[in-house]
Computed example of a mutant assay.
Amino acid sequence: MSHTALIPSHRKPRQSASKTALRAGVAGGVLSTIAVAGAAGPAQAEPVTQTIEMPTITAGLSTTVAASAEATQQVALDLETQANQDAAAATAAKAAKKAKAEAVRKAEAKKKAEAAAKAEAKAKAEAAERASRASRSTERTTLSASSGSSSSSGSSVSTASAPASSSASGSAASVVSFVQMQVGDAYVSGGTGPNSWDCSGLVQAAFRTVGVDLPRVSQSQSTAGTQVGLGNLQPGDILYWGGAGSAYHVGVYVGGGQFVGAQNSSTGVVQKSLDYDPPSGAVRVL
């Protein structure tokens, strides 16, 4: 190792050639200016006009600026379009909400009107039914009084109260009067009155008014008395359809070739000619 290796060098660091040249140029320029000024002497120095050239925007930079402006304009258009769409959507939603509310209001009004109409129709039907029941009740009371008087005197029922059974008398007249007063009542399976009947329920109730307790069903009622021929019928005889002991329907003969029976749910209690539904046989209880 050299004996001077550890001694720090006192030399100044070398400057780069570019920096040296730059400094030399600046110094030379300053000295030249001073020399020229000295040579001119006292002559008045003319002002030095220096033109500074601005850097020219290159084609690439102009393209970038144009693209940026176009992008900014497109963003503005997109924002405006979105704002218009949002406003249209809000208007449509408001209109739809209003239309829905109006539809709900109309539906509720229609529902209330229908309910009111049904209630009115029901009230009218109930009023008509009450009037009909009151009328039938009055007529039954009158006929009951007439039947009682007829039974005690042994005279026949007048044609005004039982036009199809003028030959009936006593208990038979009461039975005929009772069934005729039920004409127009409803037919209900298992019905036993006072305003709805089935066939055997009506017959049983009619005979109960004169103290005769008949069986409840048609089959038993068809054998409850003496069998009689259809050509020898009398008012108050029980008519049956089907076989004796296996009948499926019964009614009461009221005279004049007619009968009264609770036929079905469509017709209710009716008075019809025997030709309407010819019976199979008849029994006489009274």
Rank of each mutant, 00 (worst) to 15 (best):
L202F: 03
S218A: 15
A247W: 01
A39L: 09
A116P: 01
S265C: 00
A115S: 01
G38K: 07
A27Y: 07
N232D: 13
V157M: 15
G229D: 02
A67G: 15
A116Q: 02
G256S: 11
A116R: 02
D277A: 15
S146H: 15
E129K: 11
S152P: 12
V260S: 03
Y253D: 07
P42V: 03
V254W: 04
K94Y: 05
A87Y: 03
A205G: 05
P13Q: 04
V175L: 09
V179E: 10
K100M: 09
S161N: 14
Q15C: 08
A164C: 02
T142Q: 10
S144L: 15
D78W: 12
V228N: 05
A69P: 09
G256E: 08
G41I: 01
T56G: 00
G229M: 02
T81Y: 13
Q227Y: 11
A27Q: 14
P194L: 11
L79I: 13
F207H: 03
P278V: 15
S68I: 11
G154A: 13
V36A: 14
A117P: 00
A66K: 13
L202C: 03
S132I: 07
D185Q: 08
A69N: 15
E102C: 04
A172Q: 01
T138F: 15
V210C: 13
S18W: 05
T58F: 00
G225P: 04
